[in-house]
Every structure is written in structure tokens, then in C-alpha cells.
């Protein structure tokens, strides 16, 4: 009974602060309203006995929102978001899109004939999912991860506006790097 009450309260907090994101008039408030929503979801995950995922959700989301607030304020609007501003735009199309997608998903959830369980549940579901996902496909995973990593490194190298030749000179022999802003190591 108590857990139902707590869960419902958290659900209401999550939805209400989600709505608040669009109703408040300040970037900082919108960002931290979203953080509150995520924290409520994180606590709900903990209530499902998903301790690690729940606490990590709280950790990641608060961190993300703290950083996001800076970017939102930096880039949003003509008045770098330090003044009150509306959090919504393009209202009509947003409403149409949101309603349409909601109806589509809800219809899918209600109308699709969900299959009944065949067989019995494994004693440890986490292990079973891990086996099913990784067991026979380990080779694929092993190949994919270095490729993904190489892609990330390559993308960073391509996107980097100032490489090591800019910093250390054509022969890479400069004593201290030429940086627009000094770091702690450059003398």
C-alpha cells in the first residue's frame, strides 16, 4: 500500500515537473525542472529493485542538466536567456504532432495482439538476457566495438579545429604549445 502511494507520488512529480519544463519562463528553471523529473524516475527505478540503474540515472541526469543549463543559457535566444523567455514555439504544429504520435503509439499498444508467454521464466532474468544478447554474437560485438571506437577517434580528429601541428609547430618541436588559452601544463 505504502509503495503504491510513494510510486504514485513520484509519478505525479515526474509528470508535473515535466509539464513545468514548458510552463516556466526561465532556462534555468526549465532545465532543473527536467532534472527533478528525471530524479523522480530514478527513484521509481530503485523501487523496482533496479538499484544500480536507478542511482546511475539520478547521477547522469543531474550531471547532464547541470551542464545543459550552461549551454541553454549560452545559446538560447537573443538575450542569452538571462531574461524571462517563453519555453515553447511553433505551438500549433507541436500540438498536432504530439497528439498524432500519442494516438499512434496508444493505438499500437492497445490493438497489437501481444503474444502470450511460452515456456517459463528463467530464474535469473538478467543472466538470461545477457546470454541471449551476447552468447552467440560475441564475435560481432568484439568486432563492432573497435570499429565504433575508431569512428569516434576519427570523427574527433576530423572535427578538431586545432591539431597537434598547430599546437607544437610543423616539426612538433616547439618547447611549449601555442594555445589561444593556456592550460595548466603549457608554460
Amino acid at each position: 500500500m505504502l509503495s503504491i502511494i510513494v510510486f504514485s507520488a513520484l509519478a505525479i512529480i515526474a509528470v508535473a515537473s515535466g509539464i513545468a519544463v514548458f510552463r516556466v519562463d526561465s532556462m534555468a528553471r526549465a532545465t532543473y525542472a527536467l532534472a527533478v523529473s528525471f530524479v523522480a524516475v530514478g527513484v521509481m527505478l530503485v523501487m523496482f529493485d533496479l538499484d544500480y540503474i536507478g542511482v546511475i540515472t539520478i547521477l547522469m541526469m543531474v550531471m547532464e542538466m547541470a551542464i545543459m543549463a550552461i549551454y541553454m543559457i549560452m545559446f538560447m535566444g537573443m538575450n542569452p536567456a538571462l531574461m524571462p523567455m517563453s519555453m515553447v514555439h511553433n505551438n500549433r504544429w507541436s500540438a498536432i504532432l504530439a497528439t498524432g504520435i500519442f494516438l499512434l503509439l496508444a493505438a499500437g499498444a492497445l490493438l497489437v495482439p501481444w503474444p502470450a508467454r511460452s515456456g517459463t521464466a528463467a530464474p535469473d532474468l538478467t543472466v538470461a538476457v545477457g546470454e541471449a544478447l551476447m552468447g552467440s554474437k560475441m564475435l560481432v560485438m568484439l568486432t563492432v566495438s573497435p570499429i565504433l571506437f575508431a569512428t569516434i577517434v576519427a570523427a574527433l580528429v576530423l572535427a578538431n579545429p586545432r591539431g597537434r601541428y598547430d599546437r607544437w609547430g610543423d616539426n612538433l618541436k616547439r618547447v611549449c604549445p601555442d594555445d589561444p588559452q593556456q592550460g595548466g601544463l603549457g608554460k
Binding site: Y32, A35, V55, I56, I58, L59, V62, M63, M65, A66
Partner: peptide, 11 residues
């Protein structure tokens, strides 16, 4: 948990 709480300090 301790780690999540010290991230809260950011906020």
C-alpha cells in the same frame, strides 16, 4: 549513491 550525491553538488 555517494557518487550520485556528490554530482548533486554541481547543481
Amino acid at each position: 549513491w555517494f557518487n550520485a550525491m556528490d554530482v548533486m553538488v554541481w547543481a
